[in-house]
Every structure is written in structure tokens, then in C-alpha cells.
Design a protein around this nucleic acid. Structure first.
Lengths: 316, 316
DNA sequence: CTGTTAGCGCATTCAC
DNA sequence: GTGAATGCGCTAACAG
């Protein structure tokens, strides 16, 4: 893949000076049509392409952005990433993907590396434990996803809204005895916010809350739902579709058919396996798209910091 | 994140010449301990880090590799990617992730872009339709995953072996009437190879083959298995765990409990939902690891082209 | 051991 | 319109 032709070579080959070639390359005006044509021809012929490193050094942007996901195999993050990719490509940016594994330390390391390169921007999938301190220096070129932080651009999902959507739907069906399977409040969004929204809704509507907490796994749903059944529940809201799958499996196994299971995330598998489930689409794709757009806008200076919330909506 | 300090600045600040700083930076020998110490101190103090672009231009590698996945949300590719990441980081390489979406055209475009940067190497998740022609120029710095191609390094999964493993296991249980749900042979590995292995095994062991073909979705498994049941099957091998999940759902729904379902991929969800399933672990993680290692070895010149096959093994 | 010089490939004055 | 210099930040070859 050694295309070691330089701008000099093609200048020689087309019988012009290097600066003229440079002008053609950058679509500048002051070049006669014939000359331009000739140069373009040679470029085409020799498959010449200017070295990014060199132009990066000229103070130009390297057109690289970084995406720091927490886990590459998280379906929600996946969806978001897939949504941003085309947007970045389209603007000529190539994305470097890093995995933080929910470790603030790793994020720090990655940021360190990104600094050495001339990274243009960063999309960071937030998680609990990230400190504002290490992020603030990046504020102009960073967008955080799924978490917010003062002084930083962010795109968040509407955790509370999702729970409310589900509760309202249940209430409309006159279901008033609803349980909740959540995860540790240590996790700010999936954990704390969703549990809190449930609790608040119950209080507001004079319902008795039934909360059990576990992990973000189907095993957890499977193991925890019995505790809720003991309390004579008509429906259960799971903090995620993964948990919901586990819960459904238990119900199916016990041949219990009169408990409505709700999840969050609109996982297609949940619908396939248990079509009677209710889920809310949090808008992961939309979130990724929004984050990419926001970052791009920040980079070209057409936007300042901004905190966005993506609305969710009930899935069938 | 403007670290606009140059090697010159820190040379001035520490009262030495720029080359000395360069020497310190590159851990070269010919620097007195005191000087080195002083320089390092300034570097530390000023949070200086050398510009990658500049050193890349000096003919050095940019330490970037590309990973071209077909779909970011493919669990198998995900697993492989996650396995390579740490290996690359460790060697100072940052991976750019591109998505091909199974389009040879897209791969071509991506390769084009990668050429402009000084990409060091590429891991390409192969798929049907890739032409050797566009890949050959990259052969020294490319490793293909999940497919092989003459003249290219590759790491493949043992599709045929996986099917044989399953068939042998079934045979050992004296199950001789086995169906197969596959996908179009247009897909070389998941499609053609697995179907072919099944067919060959049947022939060799004088079994009657029962093959139906669909897509790589759970819906497909759900819709196709009835055709096999008509033929009085004792077990069914699905070309993937995803299909197996669909098939299992149908059986469960019909309360059929005497058909052994087998899949390929060792998807944890399959085991959780239908523990009685049989699956074979193809070694996606091991594959990714092998691919990364092979690429790194090729890059530092310590290895030449090589085609590897990762053995699979029965999962519980 | 260390400073000086000369490019790497490109964009950008500035003359012609 | 176009070509000849100049410098980006860094490393390498050459002097001291």
C-alpha cells in the first residue's frame, strides 16, 4: 500500500509547481481550467492522495474523532454508535473506538492518548464514577451520552419519562398494583433515575411501591420476580428489557399469565419471545445521532454546549 | 485540549537543544542522567506530549490500525473485537472502527480512506462478495477474519467442525434423524460451509438429510422448523444460535419436548432461555485475539502470511 | 554527550 | 495564474 507519491512528484509529472497542485487539491480558485484539468488527470492516474499526517501537521485537523463506549457489546451503545458512524464518515471524520469498561481510570488513559493525536472530538458514553475534573478540559470537543454533567454537552435518555409512560399505560388499564425490578442506584440512570421515577409516580398516584433491586441481567429478573409475586402484583416494570426477559421466563415457567411485564429499551428479542410484553423505546439511535450532530456542530463552531434529552416512546 | 507546546518550547524551558529532548522522548541512550532528568521534569510539568502527526510525517508509523466489521451489532464480531482491543492498545495502536454492512463497495471506500491516513494495518471481517483484487495490495498489513482468501492472512472459525461436533454428539445418543436449518449458501461460512458439513456427515453416516434454508434470524427458525417436524425429526441443527432460539420458541409453544435443538455460537441467551439446547462455542474471542496477534506480528515483521483455523468446542 | 542542520509532505505568503 | 520560498513539529545525520 505504499503510495509514496508526494505532491512534488505529481507537480513534476504534470509540469507545474507544487503550490499549484496544492491549490487544485484544496479547490482553490486561482488556477486556470487547463492546468487544473491536467493536474487532476495526473492525480487520478497515479492514484495520488495527499498525506493526512502532513496536512495535520500544518495545523489542520486530522479529522479523527473518538468514541469511548463503556462496553462494545452493549446493545444500546451499539445502536447509538451505529447511528453516528455514517454522520462522521460523511463529514470526513474517522472514528477511533475505545472501550472504557466503566472504568474512569481507563477513560483517563484514553483521553491521554487522544491528546497526543490531534483528536478533533470525543463522544463519551457516560457512566457513574466519571469525574468532572478530568472532563472539563475537553468540554469544547466532547459530548457525553447517557449522562449529564454540569458544563458539558450531553445527550441523555429520558429515564424518568420512560417509567412514567409505562405507569400511565398501566394505570389506564386500571392496573394499580405494580412492582419494580431495578438495579443498584449506584448506576445513576438505569438504577437511580428509573427507580426514583417509579417511586415518585407511586407516591403521586397513591400506589404502594414494591421495589426489588438486582443486576442488569436476565438472571436477575428471573430470580427477583418471585419476591414481587408474593406481594400480589398485577404488573411489573423492569429497569431494562434484559431483566424483563428473565422475569418473563420465570412467569412462563410457572404458567403465570396474568402479570403484565414491562421493560425499557425495546429489545427486539423481548418482543419476539414474549410479544405480550410492553416496552419503551428510549431512542438509542436518535441519541447517537444527536450526539454526533452536536459534536460536529461544536467542532465547526456552529454550536455551543448544550444538554439534550431524547424523548422515549411506547413500543407496541 | 490545546497542548500547543512544541519540542522547541520544552527545549528552551529546560535549557537544552531540541534533539536532546527528542532523544529523551524516544528513550535513546546518549543522554546524561541529569539532563534527562531535567528534561523529563519539564515535560511532566508542562504536560507536554509530542505530536503524533509530526512524527508520523517523519516516516514513522502513526500507530493506527483499522477494524472493519460488517455490522457493529453482530454479537460474534463484537466478541472478537473486544478481544483484540486490549492487544492493540497494549502495543500503542489505536483502532479505527469502520462498518462495511456487508458491502464490498463500502470496504473499498474505507480502504481508500485508510490509505490516505498512514494506517498500519487492517483487520477485516470477511463476507461473501469481497474480491481478492481489491484486497491483495494490502496483504502485508491485513488479516481477514471469518473468511479465507488465497494470498491473504486469515483467521477462520471451524464451521464444518462445529457441525460435526454436534452430529457426533447426537449420534452418540443414538439420534439419527436430524434436520438442519441453515441460511443461503450465498453466505459462504454460516450458509454454505455449515450446510455442506451437515450434508457430508449425513452421507458418510448414511443418514437422510433434511435441510431447510432461511435467514439468519429467530423468525426464520420459528417459521422453518415446522417443515422439519413434518419429517419426524428427533433433533435439529441450526446454523446459528439465533435461529435456534426461534426454533425453540416454536417447540415450546407447541409443547414439543422431544426434539433436541442445537445451535452454533454459544449465545448465552440461548442457554438461559432453553438450557436443554446444545451449542458449540466457535471461539469468537479466540479468533479476534488470534487475528490481532497475527496482524501485530506481520507489522513488526516477525511473521508472514498465515491462515489459521480456530477450533470450536461443545458448550454445555 | 549535546547542539546544529537538514529535510519529511504539505499549505501559505509573496513575488513574478 | 503560477512558482519559489518559508515553516509546521519532529527525527536523523553530522559536527563539535
Amino acid at each position: 500500500m505504499q503510495n509514496r507519491l508526494t505532491i512534488n512528484d505529481i507537480a513534476r509529472l504534470s509540469g507545474v509547481g507544487k503550490s499549484t497542485v496544492s491549490r487544485v487539491l484544496n479547490n482553490e480558485g486561482n488556477v486556470s481550467p487547463q492546468t487544473r484539468e491536467r493536474v487532476l488527470q495526473v492525480i487520478e492516474q497515479e492514484h495520488f492522495s495527499p498525506s493526512k499526517s502532513a496536512r495535520a501537521m500544518r495545523g489542520f485537523s486530522d479529522k479523527i474523532v473518538a468514541i469511548i463506549v463503556s462496553r462494545l457489546d452493549s446493545p444500546s451503545e451499539n445502536q447509538a454508535v451505529r447511528a453516528m458512524l455514517p454522520l462522521f464518515y460523511q463529514q470526513g471524520y474517522d472514528p477511533i473506538v475505545l472501550e472504557s469498561q466503566f472504568s474512569a481510570e481507563r477513560v483517563k488513559e484514553h483521553l491521554q492518548v487522544l491528546k497526543q493525536r490531534n483528536i478533533d472530538g470525543v463522544v463519551l458514553f457516560g457512566f457513574t464514577g466519571l469525574s468532572a475534573q478530568m472532563l472539563t478540559p475537553w468540554k469544547d470537543k466532547l459530548v457525553m451520552l447517557a449522562r449529564d454533567m454540569p458544563g458539558l454537552s450531553s445527550v441523555c435518555y429520558d429515564d424518568a419519562g420512560a417509567v412514567q409512560l409505562l405507569m400511565q399505560k398501566l394505570l389506564a388499564q386500571d392496573i394499580r398494583s405494580v412492582g419494580f425490578i431495578g438495579v443498584s442506584p449506584h448506576d445513576t440512570t438505569t438504577g437511580q433515575r428509573r427507580s426514583e421515577a417509579y417511586r415518585a409516580f407511586c407516591q403521586e398516584h397513591h400506589l404502594t411501591p414494591h421495589i426489588v433491586l438486582g443486576e442488569l441481567t436476565y438472571q436477575s429478573g428471573f430470580e427477583l420476580i418471585p419476591q414481587l409475586l408474593d406481594r400480589d402484583i398485577q404488573a411489573v416494570i423492569c429497569a431494562s428489557d434484559t431483566i424483563a426477559i428473565g422475569a418473563q421466563k420465570y412467569l412462563q415457567q410457572q404458567q403465570i399469565r396474568d402479570v403484565q411485564v414491562c421493560g425499557i429499551g425495546n429489545n427486539p428479542l423481548l418482543h419476539f419471545l414474549f410479544p405480550q410484553s410492553l416496552s419503551v423505546e428510549l431512542g438509542y439511535g436518535a441519541g447517537g445521532e444527536a450526539a454526533a450532530k452536536q459534536l460536529l456542530a461544536q467542532l465547526d463552531g456552529s454550536a455551543t454546549l448544550q444538554q439534550l434529552i431524547i424523548p422515549g416512546q411506547l413500543a407496541v
